[in-house]
């Protein structure tokens, strides 16, 4: 029994490049990204620095307007909804950021910070909001007394617990984690991952879990989407994707990850991808990965591969896996 909670269709976003100068080229941060999210599911999103993960998160949460494409939450249009409709839909999807401390208002106590979404949404009175905040504090493993303290008095892991409590107070269906554990130490990271997984079970949440660390993403996700230079190049069930990646980039990514077992992998076994990531300011023609790809075809340098369904639940944007019909079409 699946219920599609979130539909993302054809999202694209360009920025004007940072900095000044006469030749400011647009940066194509996100290009034509589509995916869906089912109830209770975790979709992991991996990709290297600057590939557009955070921009995609902002687009999905409607914090920045897309150039094209749209987001639908449970059948309701989110992207171009009216102000009031948008405000109500925001209750259904919340976000947790990487830098937990600076995602909390330093001048509000922890309790006020957690209750803040209720206040901004005009839900409940002060006492009810405090009550709700206290309940969540305990739920994320802190104490009720901590509500009176300020964010800077807490460690990074504790701040992330607070940020998670705040994200949950509106009882959302979907939580987006943007590198939420990347800044944490191994032992603290495991604590937060465990909390995140426990909360999902207890509350039936759906997650979009963004990280550049495929190990972490694999640990929490049902499905994984791999991004390269603004596009999703492969998406599929986590186990299958890790066991047998379809896209050459996903494969290169997987082979570059050192495994914490000296009997299984030493430095000589690490796969070395060709070249370095192309710049989003100056993407190559055709497939963005073709210059680094060891299996490129002639067509890869000229055409952008569309996303092809390869097997149930698995898709990739690579000509190697295009159906004969699709590749013939592309060749014309």
């Amino acid at each position: 029994m699946t219920e599609t909670l979130l539909t993302v269709a054809g999202l694209s976003k360009s920025f004007r490049a940072r900095g000044t100068g006469l030749f400011r080229r647009p940066v194509r941060a996100v290009s034509d990204v589509s995916f869906t999210l089912q109830r209770g599911e975790t979709l992991g999103l991996v990709g290297e620095s600057g590939c557009g993960k955070s921009t995609l998160a902002r687009l999905v949460l409607n914090l920045i307007p897309p150039d094209s494409g749209h987001v639908t939450i449970g059948g309701d249009a989110f992207t171009r909804a009216g102000r009031e409709a948008q405000r109500r839909l925001r209750r259904r999807m919340q976000i947790v950021f990487q830098d937990a401390l600076s995602s909390l208002n330093p001048r509000m106590t922890v309790g006020v910070n957690i209750a803040e979404p209720l206040r901004l949404q005009g839900i409940g009175n002060a006492a009810e909001r405090r009550e709700a905040a206290h309940g969540l504090l305990e739920r994320v493993g802190l104490r009720v007394q901590d509500a009176e303290r300020y964010p800077h008095e807490f460690s990074g892991g504790q701040c992330q617990r607070i940020a998670i409590a705040r994200a949950l107070i509106l009882k959302p269906d979907i939580v987006v984690f943007d590198e939420a554990v990347s800044a944490l130490d191994v032992s603290i990271r495991a604590q937060i991952l465990r909390l995140v997984l426990d909360l999902q079970q207890q509350l039936g949440l759906s997650y979009i879990f963004i990280s550049h660390d495929l190990g972490v993403v694999k640990r929490v996700s049902d499905r994984i989407a791999v991004m390269y230079l603004g596009r999703i190049v492969e998406i599929g069930p986590a186990d299958e994707l890790v066991r047998g990646p379809l896209h050459p980039y996903a494969e290169a990514l997987l082979r570059a990850i050192p495994i914490a077992d000296p009997r299984r992998m030493r430095v000589r076994d690490l796969g070395l991808a060709e070249g370095e990531a192309a710049s989003p300011m100056n993407p190559p023609d055709g497939c963005a990965f073709h210059q680094r790809c060891t299996r490129q075809l002639a067509i890869c340098a000229s055409d952008i591969p569309a996303v092809h369904h390869v097997s149930p639940g698995r898709s990739t944007a690579c000509f190697l896996h295009a159906s004969p019909a699709a590749s013939r079409q592309a060749a014309d």
Partner: peptide, 16 residues
């Protein structure tokens, strides 16, 4: 504590 690429979500995560 480490989240290995080979562990899946059913393997218990044991934080310190």
């Amino acid at each position: 504590c480490i989240a290995g690429i080979e562990d899946d979500r059913t393997a218990p995560l044991q934080p310190i």
